[in-house]
Nucleic acid binder design. Sequence first.
DNA 1: CTTATTGCAAACACTTTGCACTCTC
DNA 2: GAGAGTGCAAAGTGTTTGCAATAAG
Lengths: 148, 148
Amino acid sequence: MNSTQQSDSVIISALRRGGYKATPQRIEICRSVLGCREHPSAQKIYGKVKKAYPTVSLATIYKTLEILKELGMLQELSIPQGQARLDPNMNLHINMICLQCGKIIDSDSESLQEDLKRVAAEAKFSTALQRIDIYGKCEKCAVSRKPS
Amino acid sequence: MNSTQQSDSVIISALRRGGYKATPQRIEICRSVLGCREHPSAQKIYGKVKKAYPTVSLATIYKTLEILKELGMLQELSIPQGQARLDPNMNLHINMICLQCGKIIDSDSESLQEDLKRVAAEAKFSTALQRIDIYGKCEKCAVSRKPS
DNA sequence: CTTATTGCAAACACTTTGCACTCTC
DNA sequence: GAGAGTGCAAAGTGTTTGCAATAAG
């Protein structure tokens, strides 16, 4: 059993557990987005899935992503004037989002998370606390002048 | 001189310094959004400004908000499946965004900010670092069940 | 008086929905 | 075979743009 087969069976049982049918398109969409560290957009996933299923539609992508969000396997990051980006990391973590090029870097700093939880608790804010987004510029964009 | 007149003159000179004309609509838009702690949407501002200028258009609102962003007087928060929200607080601070009702709470925790800067620096991420968004649920929404 | 700005309407980009055909279970 | 899922196209949002009439400096 290789790792692809293993994750496929995980995907299939997760879908069925949620009462959804495990169609080939859905499995391929899950493969493309779960375990993907690049925070892809729906369009990006569409492009990837089309290689295996050339007739797949964007509507199917969006519907499947909705299911994955409902199943708690995915969250959605929103970026000013851009397309939503998808993040399969459901543990509390930090996304550093470059406002210039859209690159997203993950971090898992323990002390930062403790501190955040404390601040959130002070504001009686929390419960489903899962994500922190920091906006700024990545290394490359900080060096370069405004985009030409 | 009352505080409204004072802030009006600040607005007018800021616009002119940027090379923009200080039209009544723009001044009213600035009044509505600068110094507003509620993180309003463009639509909300439109509603407020229409009381004073009933013929104002949403296009004028968006164009003016664009100018204010360019002048560094405003930043834009983006929320999953919602309208962008505007934040006149340009100091590094933390926005706690409720994913259920859209409420946004500000925080200025010093230690958290220090910690965040350190983590960002480790990832060579920073420069224009101005904002941190934390997603979760506010006090009210954490108590209530899913929206009916 | 010159030039930027307004406000209308049309265009846009991304996402969601309706529906007949198809496929999973 | 029953019912959910697909993919098409059309509808929805929120935001942006083009342009003639208007107003600021």
